[in-house]
Structures are given as structure tokens and as C-alpha cells.
Design a protein around this nucleic acid. Structure first.
Lengths: 159, 159
DNA sequence: GGTGAAACTTCTAATAA
DNA sequence: TTATTAGAAGTTTCACC
């Protein structure tokens, strides 16, 4: 795959879309003083290149009754089981993301649950996976998400 | 704020939008055998209720040159400094999310960097924050993101 | 609540520059 | 590559169930 080079216009388009994917292309065009057709072509190109992988809603999980977040470090009996255990972990929908990591833990994952009771069930389920030696849980008392826009701004200035 | 109750139609609408926020309301309407106007009204209601907080692009950070992910546990000299340190941490755009946690660390955050060199700079910057005693880094060797759709499916069936 | 149609806005692809 | 254009498609409102 050829390396895709984004220019300033592309950056600005992404910048406008990153916080609201439903911004009309005509609005973007007006702001950037280009035509809506150009916006369309460029977005399509970025999609084709895989830079834009998709779009998603940001939901308020608290309002949906899922206010519990924790990180769970997983110790394996043997690192050769990593792939297998990772697959089992990914079968649990309440695990939002899992990482194979260096350092203390072999696998490290984030879970989203209704409450402590529910979290307990999820953690027990993780503990029960064949090859898992033990787990260690860190409960999130407060989550502070950084604006994607700021990272993007930095990415663009650094590129 | 009055508790907002989602019904089956709302779930289905969210289910269609969660993976692609630009799905036309007319498509959703057709699939759910309702009118496009109804879809519009319901989405607006969920936005007003704050269930839908926004929408965002999913970008391929690797393709943008940011292939390094790590989790950094932060030890504070004193927990009274939590708020202050959290604010300093959030000023770093490469920190995508930070949590105040129970357990080993006081604060726990995820960083996204270009490479190890860049990550080093970020971690040093974290170390340099006033009130930070020391940090502990776990490098992600492999990230496996779980489909939001699956969590949502479970949330809806549980509600 | 929901509908369906009208009025308005946006998208998209073809063509031209 | 980008702009223009025009028909297709989507959004949004509103009178009426």
C-alpha cells in the first residue's frame, strides 16, 4: 500500500469531521473555500486509503446504566497461551479493549460494567479462562477523556 | 433530568448508527418500517437527552504515524494533588484518557505516540509534573478493540 | 406519540477545465 | 487535481392522524 500523504486541506476536513461526522460537506466546503465535490472526493480518498476507518456514535454509557469502569491486568500461566486467552477475553462484550503488554501483566484490558456486582461477574469470568493464573483489578473512580481534536492537531503539526 | 427510557426502536436506530453515523435516516426508516421523520425525531430526542453525546471518526493512527500505545501508572507524592496532576496530564494531547484509580496507582493513563523516542518524551513529561512521585509504563504490543456493537447489544438486552 | 408530503438541503457522479 | 452542475437522495418541518 502506497504511503498516503495528507495535505492541509485534508487535515482541516478531518478536523471538522472528527467532532461531528454529520457536518454537511457543503459547510466544510464553505469554510475551506473549496467545492463540496472536492470535499467528497477527498473524504472518499481517505476512506479508500484506510485513514478513515469508519465513524461511530459517542454514547453516554452512564445514562445507559453502565457507570463502572475498571482496568484488569491478567497474569498468564504461560505466555504461549496469550493468543488463546486473548480470544476468550474478546468474547466478553464488557471488555472494551485488550492489550498484550510488556511489564507486570501479560494482558491488560478495560471493562465497562453496570456496577460492582456486574464487574465481579466479569472479573470472575476472566479468572476462569483456561491459562489465566490470576488477575489484578484497578477501579476507575473518575475518567477524563482527552479531546481527539487536540491529538489530531498535534499529529498534523508534527507530520 | 428525567430518566430517559429507550425502546426497541431507539435501540435499533442506535444499532444502525453506531457503526456508521452517516447511514441515511431514510435507510433506517425503511429497515424499521417507520418514517424518516420519526427517525429524525427520535435521534434528536436521544441527542437532547444526552444519550448520544456526539459522533466521531475512527482514524487509523498507525497510518498517521502513531503506532505506539502504552499505559502509564502514576504514583503521587500525596493524593491531595490528584486534581492538579490530572489537569496537568490532560494538557498533554498524547494522553488519550486518564483515570483516577483504586489499587496500585493513583492515576492511570493511556498514551499514543509516534515511537519509543516520542513515548519517552511523553513519559518524562509526566514524570516532571509537580506532585508526581514516579511512573510505571506498560507498553502495548498488540491492541484488540472490541466491537461497540456487541456491548450495545448486551446493554439493550439487559436493560 | 406517528405519518406523509412539501420545501429545503445535501450528495454524488459526470463533465469540463 | 479541482470546479461546476444537475439530477438523485436525504433531511426537516408541519398539518393531520
Amino acid at each position: 500500500m502506497a504511503k498516503f500523504k495528507l495535505d492541509e486541506i485534508d487535515h482541516q476536513i478531518l478536523d471538522m469531521l472528527i467532532d461531528n461526522t454529520r457536518v454537511p460537506f457543503t459547510d466544510i466546503a464553505k469554510k475551506l473555500l473549496i467545492s463540496a465535490g472536492t470535499v467528497h472526493v477527498r473524504v472518499k480518498k481517505m476512506e479508500d486509503a484506510g485513514i478513515i476507518k469508519g465513524s461511530s456514535l459517542t454514547l453516554d454509557y452512564k445514562k445507559l446504566g453502565y457507570s463502572f469502569i475498571a482496568y484488569v491486568g491478567v497474569f498468564l500461566q504461560n505466555t504461549s497461551q496469550t493468543k488463546f486467552v486473548l480470544q476468550r477475553i474478546n468474547e466478553i462484550p464488557y471488555v472494551t479493549v485488550a492489550h498484550v503488554t510488556t511489564g507486570k501483566f501479560n494482558i491488560f484490558c478495560k471493562i465497562r460494567a453496570k456496577n460492582t456486582e456486574h464487574a465481579k461477574d466479569i472479573i470472575f469470568r476472566l479468572d476462569d479462562i483456561e491459562g489465566v493464573y490470576r488477575t489484578e483489578t484497578m477501579i476507575s473512580l473518575e475518567e477524563s477523556i482527552n479531546d481527539k481534536r487536540r491529538l489530531m492537531h498535534d499529529i498534523f503539526n508534527a507530520l
